[in-house]
Nucleic acid binder design. Sequence first.
DNA 1: GACCCGTGGTCACCATCTACGACGTCGCCA
DNA 2: TGGCGACGTCGTAGATGGTGACCACGGGTC
Lengths: 336, 336
Amino acid sequence: MVTIYDVAKLAGVSAATVSRVVNGRSSVDAGLAARVQQAMAELDYRPNAVARNLRRQKTSIWAVIISDIGNPFFTSLVRGVEDVGQAAGYSVVLCNSDEDPAKEARYVAAALAEQMAGVIISSTGKAANLSRLVDAGTPVVAIDREVRAAAVDTVLVDNAHGADLATSHLAEQGYRRIACITGPRRLPTAQRRLQGYRAALTAYRLEPDDNLVRYGDYREEGGYQAMASILDSGAAPDAVFAANNLMTVGALECLVDRGITVPAQMGVVGFDDIPWAHLVRPSLSTVVQPTYELGRTAALLLVERIAEPTRPLSTVTLRTELKIRDSSAPREQRFR
Amino acid sequence: MVTIYDVAKLAGVSAATVSRVVNGRSSVDAGLAARVQQAMAELDYRPNAVARNLRRQKTSIWAVIISDIGNPFFTSLVRGVEDVGQAAGYSVVLCNSDEDPAKEARYVAAALAEQMAGVIISSTGKAANLSRLVDAGTPVVAIDREVRAAAVDTVLVDNAHGADLATSHLAEQGYRRIACITGPRRLPTAQRRLQGYRAALTAYRLEPDDNLVRYGDYREEGGYQAMASILDSGAAPDAVFAANNLMTVGALECLVDRGITVPAQMGVVGFDDIPWAHLVRPSLSTVVQPTYELGRTAALLLVERIAEPTRPLSTVTLRTELKIRDSSAPREQRFR
DNA sequence: GACCCGTGGTCACCATCTACGACGTCGCCA
DNA sequence: TGGCGACGTCGTAGATGGTGACCACGGGTC
């Protein structure tokens, strides 16, 4: 490995001068600087980031800890983070916790041990993981999922409102027995989306029925199971609102398997878009989240938090939007 | 930050002893070890990985550099890498090059500077990036895409064979004017898949026609454009083989927009599965790659390479499999 | 009494950064 | 013109946290 001393020796200066040239922090005589530059080029010198990190007590890497790499929700979110991060001089690496608090804890520990410059995290819900970062002084931004017990900047979408939109839309289309498949109980997004669903029922004077509600796991399998369970319960839904994209897919699969046609026999609206939603037949109505913007916003917050660690906490809530496609076609056209 | 010295002072031992307890390398008296453990717990001591990395001259992190985080192909591949990596004591972080050699170079530079323990990379094609890693002694495994000019272990799928399978299948189903949308010219996977397509044409005595071939960008947009271009050229295809999943989706969209029905007017087979392929109507026939296994195999090779840096290079080629669904239904049923 | 082994401390080292001080030059003023 | 202060530039030295080679010590064994 070529070190700063090798460069210094070749250029006939001290290591400190080479360091100054590399970092451009302090003024160095132009002639000397040129000699150093040449020596660096000649030796193909690359500063050792590990040593630099140790000395500076921080790195120039951000960790983005996401809860499910298989969920396309995160891909454009990550792009948003990356674009801002790169522009600000950071490398962005991704860690996949797979909804497993233990795996999340591992990555949090790694981020701490490696002294990452910042962390953006979609938490599995364990506040302790976040607090550990905050206590160590690592700048953190929570994304998609708020963590009440931890004092961190947060970027959310208006989950309740989006769910309300979706459910209201179904109600307006004439559906009367609207089921809801929400996410894991412990996740605030699941709670909020359920709230929004219930608010819409109330607004449209539809009878709430616990037999129409299930808690899934935010994955395809869970959506399938929940849909099957609702159907088997005899609750006789005529529509379903699924609280995330993968569960919507799972629910659809279940409906296909049971020979239930959408939307003729069952209206469907999902929360969060899926790629190729328009290729799926029938095309899926969904609550669309501004995923890229979510990532961007989180990254901007992180930049600000790094620049000013003591600034007051902020929570940014972004708007969702209902995208109406075929799976929630008006019921009255067929049955009234 | 709690350092090893703080722990040492509290436990009344030297820092070296604490280090020994932490790493369990050398024998330490049980009583002392217990005191050290207690002191560590009391202070919530976490070893500084940066300092350790500097001293040891390597980290315990793997970087997986992928070319498109939006492509679901990579998600299960990454899971395969992670499962093996975690088991072997490594943390796995993801870097997204977005098919941009400059971004790839950035991440390679970061992996070098941070002295990553190993790198698994799906290269954009710039051999220089790989060689830089190899020259610096970083263990590297190329995945999905071979890089001829670089001396690295490689894990591939039988691209030509898979493309041959897909094209032959279309031919057997009675399609005669089979188009091909392959990937960027510079990528070996694109070349191999085109080879396989041509081999199948030859085998079935179908006339090759350059008007039926396009080079896309492995993204949705490129698939759309390529499909449109083929249709506009007057080449009159009756089927199309698209050389990756996202381009297949793009091609389908184009067909939908033009009112061309699949498979009645156009048979379609894609390379690499997409999630929810069975929900898309018509359901998509695809060449399925063993993505999880790809990741797993690459990770295992990396482990071996780390253990034995001088072992001879190996290339593992995994089998693909044709999954027949509705988009390639027999042509003769309708037209003969 | 010599040797060995288990145990634990000392110290050099990893590559880089930076506070501090030294040195030289320049300008200003007497 | 000489002296002094200011400033720019550069080197020295210590610091960053942890590791491991080496050494010292003490007790046991032959």
